[in-house]
């Protein structure tokens, strides 16, 4: 909205019709004299009202959207203990925690790490095929080496590692799935992504 009447002056025809439409608001005064003022007043109130209405509607939609995101989940905890490090034989893939917690514990070349058992393609659980020395996803055939690096099928990237550490109290291996380490971002060098056996 502009301040000076000179700038806002519309086409004569439009002015006449708008003056007419503004008339009911102030029926006592002659329309031509201060149609400018009453129109500006009317429009700025309308603008406030529309902005307010849009904001309220947007707020309702946001609240509605937020409502659909639950605050409490009844899912197994993301952090769990898997036993002492000596439980994991060298150069082996441990499948004991796949069903309960969804991780493979891999002991490979002196490193112990937890690979999250979710195919990075479409989220199916990959199987460990000991004979072929690879993880294979049943849904679309993505294949990963023992260390989780992808080499076949449609998947774009390797499996993800979960955070792994030794609990200082009882010396058990502690896996935390809430923290993920992605190979393509160079995060596998992070000391909390593996244990040195």
């Amino acid at each position: 909205m502009t301040e000076t009447p000179e700038e806002t002056k519309p086409e004569p025809a439009a002015q006449a019709s708008e003056a007419k439409s503004a008339q009911p608001a102030k029926p006592a005064k002659p329309a031509a004299a201060d149609a400018e003022v009453s129109r500006r007043g009317f429009f700025s109130w309308a603008a406030v009202a529309w902005v307010g209405f849009t904001a309220a509607a947007g707020g309702c939609l946001t609240a509605w959207g937020r409502f659909m995101f639950p605050n409490v989940l009844y899912e197994p905890p993301t952090s769990f203990k898997v036993g002492p490090p000596s439980d994991f034989a060298p150069d082996a893939v441990d499948e004991r925690f796949v069903e309960s917690n969804g991780v493979f514990i891999v002991n490979d070349q002196g490193q112990l790490y937890a690979l999250i058992a979710i195919c990075t393609h479409l989220g199916c659980p990959p199987n460990w095929l000991e004979a072929q020395n690879k993880f294979k996803c049943p849904c679309h055939g993505s294949g990963y080496y023992r260390n989780g690096i992808n080499f076949e099928g449609p998947t774009p990237r390797p499996l993800e590692r979960a955070a792994i550490s030794i609990d200082p109290d009882d010396g058990q291996v502690l896996v935390d799935k809430a923290q993920k380490f992605l190979w393509e971002r160079g995060q596998w060098d992070d000391p909390s992504s593996f244990l040195t056996a």
């Binding site: 796949v98 069903e99 969804g102 393609h121 479409l122 199916c124 659980p125 049943p138 849904c139 679309h140 449609p154 774009p156």
Partner: peptide, 25 residues
């Protein structure tokens, strides 16, 4: 924890699932 092999989407989305072989999700 056990996915059947192969896991297929409902049949009317299998055209899309076939595209997944060639494209990123």
């Amino acid at each position: 924890s056990v996915a059947p092999n192969p896991s297929k989407a409902p049949w009317y989305f299998l055209g899309l699932q076939e595209m997944l072989v060639y494209f990123d999700p």
